[in-house]
Design a protein around this nucleic acid. Structure first.
Length: 260
DNA sequence: ATGACTCCCGAGGGGAGA
């Protein structure tokens, strides 16, 4: 089973890129973030014609997450991250696909830091840890995947010294991410490629993609019983070079199918 | 570096992204 995550940065503006990439790579499951479309403006028909059923949670202007599935039935479990009934951002959706729980998340950016947006990021990360702990207690394989907006280590950024004051790289979010992983999750790409420079995002400024001035901020975390099923993982880096493309590239893993 | 680049909203710039 090939599972991908892609911060699409506006699903309607990027629809040709999304469809081209789906046709080229045909993942079984796709987690999308930053739809930037209200619920009623999701391009469901085009996605269906590409061979995918979809569940999504839209929002006017910002955020928005979706899960696409090709060939496997999909059962939506929830579309909010538990722990704060006042949080209205569309940043989380979860489904069971092929006996595997897929949690698609778009973690808050948090800039500028310090400030209320940074506080929101940290509280969201604490809620995610609490929910992740609950998921680990369930008897089901889990993939926690999406745009975490966290650069985990110096290896994951082209010039660490330039990002010290940024909410993606400050000590608190890094510590919260490390605490989450420390519950027993496996960072799929880093585990399979411990010594490689891997980036999943290049900003639109200053020819960042041409200079490979990137960040690794889109992550797959696998529950312990899933880690043994991990076969390969990578970044569809070339997609970032297409016309009218997102500032993120798609990231993917391949898992062995469940045995039972 | 209050930069740059690109989206959405909506009809002109402003907010957000990372």
């Amino acid at each position: 089973m090939r599972i991908a995550t892609y911060n699409i940065n506006g699903i309607n503006a990027r629809l040709p890129v999304l469809l081209r990439w789906l046709a080229e790579t045909q993942p079984d499951v796709v987690c999308l973030q930053e739809l930037k479309a209200p619920q009623e403006n999701f391009p469901e028909q085009a996605i269906l014609e590409a061979g995918y059923q979809a569940i999504w949670l839209g929002e006017k202007s910002w955020n928005g997450v979706a899960i696409l599935s090709r060939g496997h039935a999909m059962q939506e479990v929830r579309n909010t991250l538990p722990g704060d009934d006042t949080d209205t951002h569309s940043r989380y959706i979860e489904a069971i696909i092929n006996k595997t729980l897929i949690a698609c998340l778009y973690l808050p950016n948090g800039n500028p830091a310090p400030g209320p947006k940074f506080d929101y990021k940290l509280s969201w990360m604490k809620r995610l840890q609490e929910h992740a702990r609950y998921l680990l207690s369930e008897d089901v394989p889990v993939v926690l995947v999406g745009d975490y907006n966290v650069i985990p280590t110096d290896m994951d950024v082209y010039k660490p010294e330039r990002w010290l004051d940024n909410a993606l790289f400050m000590p608190e979010p890094k510590a919260e991410f490390a605490a989450l992983v420390g519950q027993g999750w496996t960072d799929a790409l880093r585990t399979l490629h411990p010594d490689e420079r891997i980036y999943t995002y290049w900003d639109y400024f200053r020819k960042a993609y041409d200079r490979n001035a990137g960040l690794r901020i889109d992550h797959f975390l696998l529950s312990p019983q899933l880690a043994g099923r991990l076969r390969s993982a990578g970044v569809d880096r070339h997609v970032r070079g297409w016309e009218k493309t997102s500032d993120h590239a798609p990231v993917w893993i391949v898992l062995d199918d469940p045995t039972d």
